[in-house]
Design a protein around this nucleic acid. Sequence first.
DNA 1: CCTACCTGACTGGCCAGTCAGTTAAATACG
DNA 2: CGTATTTAACTGACTGGCCAGTCAGGTAGG
Lengths: 199, 199
Amino acid sequence: MSDETTEELMGATYRALCKHGYASLRMQDIADESTKSKAALHYHYESKHDLLLAFLEHLYEQFETEISEDCGGDPETQLLTFVEERLTPREEGQKEFQTAILEIKAQAPYDEAYRERLAGFDGLVFDRLRSLLQAGIDRGVVEEDVDPEDTAAFLAEHINGAQLRNVTVGAPLAEARQRLRAYLRREVLVGSGAENGGG
Amino acid sequence: MSDETTEELMGATYRALCKHGYASLRMQDIADESTKSKAALHYHYESKHDLLLAFLEHLYEQFETEISEDCGGDPETQLLTFVEERLTPREEGQKEFQTAILEIKAQAPYDEAYRERLAGFDGLVFDRLRSLLQAGIDRGVVEEDVDPEDTAAFLAEHINGAQLRNVTVGAPLAEARQRLRAYLRREVLVGSGAENGGG
DNA sequence: CCTACCTGACTGGCCAGTCAGTTAAATACG
DNA sequence: CGTATTTAACTGACTGGCCAGTCAGGTAGG
C-alpha cells in the first residue's frame, strides 16, 4: 500500500472516530471519510480490529515525534507546558477524539493488543514526565525530595483522571488544569510553593 | 414488579456486567444470570437502555446508603479510609465491575441519561470528600490553607485517574494508593507532612 | 496479460425487540 | 362453596435490521 493511501485511511479513521466515537464506529463510516470504498479497507487490512491497531500504531509514532519536538526552555516551563498541554484541547474535534480514545482504553482489559498500544502511550508520557522532573532536580528548579518516578506516576494518573472526569460528568478541564498547576507550584517546583508562606 | 424480582434482575445485571463487560453485554447474558427469560426482561423494562438506567439508579441508591454508613473515627482516619477504599477492590469481581463502569463512563458523552446518573455518583464522592476535608479543618487535622472544594475535586480526579490507569495499562492500584496516601499526608493532613523535615 | 488496487452487491451471523400463546393467582359471580 | 373471568408474569419461537467480511468481477499501469 502506498504511503499516500495509508495516510488517507489513517486520516479517515481519525475523522470517523471523532464523528461517531469508537463504540458505534462502522467500517462504512471510515470509508465515508475517505475517497475509498468499505471493501477497499478490507483489501488493505485483514479486519476492523487490524485497522484500528494500525491506527493506534500510527498515532503512537506521531505522538512520539511530537513529544520529542517541543524541547524549548527550562525544565520548569517545559514541565508546566507538557502537563497543561495534556489538559488543553488544541485542534478541532480534539475533545471528541479524546473521548474515542477513552472508549478504547475501556476496552483494553478485553483486548491485549489494545492494552499493549495504550501502554506505549502511557510509557511515553511517563518517561517524559520523569525525565523532565529529573532535569528539574538537576538544575535545582524541582524540589530535591521529589521522587521523579513516583511523581511522574502521580501526574500521569492525575492527567488521566482529569480527562476522564471531564468526559464523564462534564467537569471543566480548565479548572482541573488550574488545580494541577497549583499542585506543581506548591509541591514540585522550587521557589513558588508552601515554603514561602508558613501561615 | 415485585421488589424480589427487581432485586434479582439487578443482581443478574451486576453479574452479567462483571462477566461480559458493558460493550458486549447481551440481554441474554443478563437473563442467563437470573431465573427469568430474555423476554421477561423486555416485559419489565422497555428496552436494554432502560434496564441499564434502572441498574445505575439502583446502584446509586446502594452507594448513597453505603457512603453515609462508614462514619467511624476522626476525620483524618475517615478521609484516608474513604480515599483508599475507592482504590481497593473489595468483593469478588469488583475489578471487572469497575471496568464495566468505566465503559459506561466512556459512553456518557453520547448519552445524557448515563451522564446524569454518573454525575450523581461523582457528586456523592465529591460531597463526601469536601465535607470530610471541612470537618478536618474545623478540628485542626487538615491544613488550614487547604480549600475543601479544590482539594475534593483534585482527589476525585486523582481517584478516577488511578482507576483508569489501572484498567488501561495495568498500573498496580496498590502503588497508586500509596502515592495518594503520601500526597494526603504531605499536603493535606496536619502533623505528618513537609513541615517536619526541611532537608 | 498480469498484478495491484479497487468496487457494488451480496451473505451470514448476531441480537434487541415482538408476539402469540401459557400458567397461576386474584377477583367476580351465581 | 365452586366456577368463570380477568390480569400479571412469564416463555419459546420468531423477525427485522445492522454490519463485518466476502466475492466476482472491473480498470489502469507495467
